[in-house]
């Protein structure tokens, strides 16, 4: 804003904006507060805001009773594994599309995008049956592959839009300087694209972390990530609110922090470069 706004108006806007922000954030804030209450305080009428005896008991209970870290570890495995696999496949593909485009490049990109639009439920049954057949049900490997496949188009797209911004002349210079294709990508392109690759990783970790169709349908316990862990709290009766809150906070906290840091890149990734 180039012009000064009157002080009164600015204060008015501040109050309104904070009110809207807090209303939207309220469920998360409330969950956060409740996670430190005793079960009794959690359901007290009228509700207490901060004037309660803060306790970490719920977090301890969650870990001992439900083995939180097992699910947390699975979430990390799945999101990092599928992202790493995605980069291995997507970096070369995005390199080719950005720097050696042909008449068909655009079609290939759009086709990849269209696979992302295939509703999961359309292929759930064969994938489910194949998972049974190959013993992949409730295995981390199987889920990593599925998450990798459903996010591959987004990874390719994001990398493609970032690579496009790198001048091709620099890669040609590397070629003139005697760099092999592998060195051209690993020593010239990748270091230059670090910010783009980092945002791609962040977005993809967020998407995999929160994926809740395949992770719910293809796991039972062994490979189950946090989405399934939370789903098991589906019907807590009465006095489980505090523990549900603690479990929820544990499930969303890591990704909430990652997400807050990567908010700028999100727009670009989620709109396939259509809005920057």
């Amino acid at each position: 804003m180039a012009r000064n706004v009157t002080k009164g108006r600015k204060i008015g806007t501040t109050i309104l904006a904070w009110f809207v922000g807090l209303v939207i954030f309220f469920p998360i804030l409330w969950t956060f507060l409740t996670s430190f209450k005793t079960e009794l305080q959690a359901i007290s009428i009228p509700p207490v805001f901060v004037g309660f005896d803060w306790t970490l008991e719920n977090y301890a209970t969650i870990q001992t009773q439900s083995n939180y870290f097992h699910f947390m570890a699975n979430s990390i495995y799945l999101s990092l594994g599928s992202t790493a696999l995605g980069l291995i496949f997507a970096i070369p593909a995005a390199w080719a599309m950005a720097f050696s485009p042909t008449k068909r490049t655009k079609d290939v990109l759009l086709w990849m995008l269209s696979t992302k639009m295939l509703p999961a439920v359309g292929v759930l049954i064969p994938v489910y049956l194949m998972f049974i057949r190959f013993g992949l049900l409730d295995s981390r490997l199987g889920l990593i592959v599925v998450l990798f496949l459903i996010n591959l188009p987004i990874i390719v797209w994001m990398l493609y839009t970032y690579f496009k911004e790198i001048p091709g002349e620099i890669l040609e210079a590397a070629r003139m300087d005697g760099a092999s294709l592998r060195k051209e990508i690993t020593q010239v392109l990748a270091p230059m694209a670090v910010p783009g690759i980092a945002s791609t990783i962040l977005l993809n970790v967020i998407l995999s972390w929160n994926e809740a169709f395949w992770t719910l349908n293809l796991t039972t316990s062994n490979a189950a990530p946090l989405t399934a862990f939370i789903a098991s709290f589906s019907s807590p009766q009465g006095n489980f609110y505090a523990k549900l809150s603690a479990a929820s906070m544990l499930a969303i906290a890591p990704i909430l922090i990652v997400g807050w840091f990567s908010q700028k890149q999100l727009v670009r990734g989620l709109t396939f470069g259509a809005v920057k």
């Binding site: 001048p167 002349e169 620099i170 040609e172 210079a173 590397a174 003139m176 010239v188 270091p191 230059m192 670090v194």
Partner: peptide, 14 residues
């Protein structure tokens, strides 16, 4: 065995 100097210099920025 040729070396090239590009219009944009094409230096490796990193």
């Amino acid at each position: 065995g040729l070396a090239m100097v590009f219009q944009s210099y094409a230096l490796y920025p990193h």
